[in-house]
Design a binder for these strands. Structure first.
Lengths: 92, 92
DNA sequence: GGGACTATCTATAAGTT
DNA sequence: TAACTTATAGATAGTCC
């Protein structure tokens, strides 16, 4: 978007990269917030700039999102483990 | 964007909410990826739909992002603790 | 570094099949 | 209901301060 089309690859010029980071980070955080409101979704977004600075958004609080994420992943792993067990039983 | 302007509030109609969620989730994930590439940033994004389904993007891997986030937060807390100690020393 | 501007590109709301 | 289409709102690249 903007005056010219750009290719999605690392911006070499560090000044331009910083400016683009600042603009797009704002846009991304805004859209994350909009999604959470419009669609009643729980969203957690963490961004570290190339200089190591942290920026974040969470619709509730980040710890809650991370905990929920971790649990969801554990459950997924559980399901996979179960299906692997089933596979073992079937193939033996 | 689109044929009409919308207000950012929860979409009541569940069908419309689901359609909008699907579209905007895609857009958000894409922009998160673009930011990470263009600006050499580390990004982690977690989205739970209102029905509880998990969607995610991470520029490296989510565990690494969460660990880095946790450490950054601990350091922030450390800095704050230090300044509070300083305040105590000064005021005593 | 941060705003303001604006031409242009992209995302998407609404409509259609 | 999910795709596909299209008109339009919104994001942003380039620019100047």
């Amino acid at each position: 978007m903007g005056r010219g089309k750009i290719v999605i690859r690392r911006i070499d010029n560090s000044t331009n990269r910083q400016v683009t980071f600042s603009k797009r980070r704002g846009g991304l955080l805004k859209k994350a917030k909009e999604l959470s409101i419009l669609c009643d979704a729980e969203v957690g977004l963490v961004v570290f700039s190339s200089t190591g600075r942290l920026h974040e958004f969470s619709s509730t609080n980040m710890k809650a999102v991370i905990d929920r994420y971790t649990k969801a992943k554990e459950e997924q792993a559980g399901v996979n483990a179960t299906s692997e067990i089933k596979v073992c039983i079937h193939s033996s």
